[in-house]
Design a binder for these strands. Sequence first.
DNA 1: TCCTAGCTTAGACTATGTCTAAACAAAGAA
DNA 2: TTCTTTGTTTAGACATAGTCTAAGCTAGGA
Lengths: 140, 140
Amino acid sequence: MSDLVTRLRRHNWRITPQRRVIAETLEGSHVHFTAEEILERAVERMPELSRATVYNTLNEMVALGEVLELTLDGRSKRYDPNADHEHHHLICEGCGLMKDVHAMADPVDWLPGDERHGFSVTRGSITYRGLCPDCQGAEA
Amino acid sequence: MSDLVTRLRRHNWRITPQRRVIAETLEGSHVHFTAEEILERAVERMPELSRATVYNTLNEMVALGEVLELTLDGRSKRYDPNADHEHHHLICEGCGLMKDVHAMADPVDWLPGDERHGFSVTRGSITYRGLCPDCQGAEA
DNA sequence: TCCTAGCTTAGACTATGTCTAAACAAAGAA
DNA sequence: TTCTTTGTTTAGACATAGTCTAAGCTAGGA
């Protein structure tokens, strides 16, 4: 059983066949899919699965705090099943390739008190941008 | 004349009346507007201005590197005229209020070499999240 | 003046995501 | 078991954000 399904079950959240397929599709890959990409792949295992269920299920997993919603470009949201594991993202500006990365420190520690404007700051996520090895070659 | 218009002119970019109104609208505020919000305000000064021109112009200013495109939620892009001044963003998870903030360190310095996956990393932007003073009160 | 290149426009079109109403399914009560 | 209640899924309509297209407009140079 997938780790994500285990975490979801702890919330007393009913694991229907549709939800299981969606969770396993999400977790089975090491890239962060869009909702449409998840639908496309999940439908291979469950052809009658509807678009609305995929969107509903992803939104519920985000609300439960077990999946992160990424909005790294302005097009479509992407879903990251590793909500429990602090990490950031590195994106290639040439081809869009995305990697999960870990920084040496927590960015919240770098935000001085007088820059917090009275907010209670709970987290900081970093989006790194640059060129991947392939796209650096293509530049030259 | 606005500073943004000055910067844009340096690229040999024609400053038409429409482009001037859009640039001044963008720069005149201290919140980061969406394209629709800019259209709404710019139309007050130039009623015949079209939606397509606003989108085209914003995209061109981003391509010239003088305006930043922010995709902080999955809904609509926001535009930040301070592309030349390194800063990050702090967002209230209650009401969406956004502030520009400055961190004490450059996040790129905190990404170890073995986490770069061969990329040439050019920048890192941080999105801080928390609750603003008003929304902290509403929680209790 | 005319020509050309680039700019602007209205509206059609696309992509992404949400909502609605009806059908369906599962769990507990009788 | 059957009934009831509650939650889930579905198809398709709808909403929102943004892009594209074709036509007309404008400014500057020959």
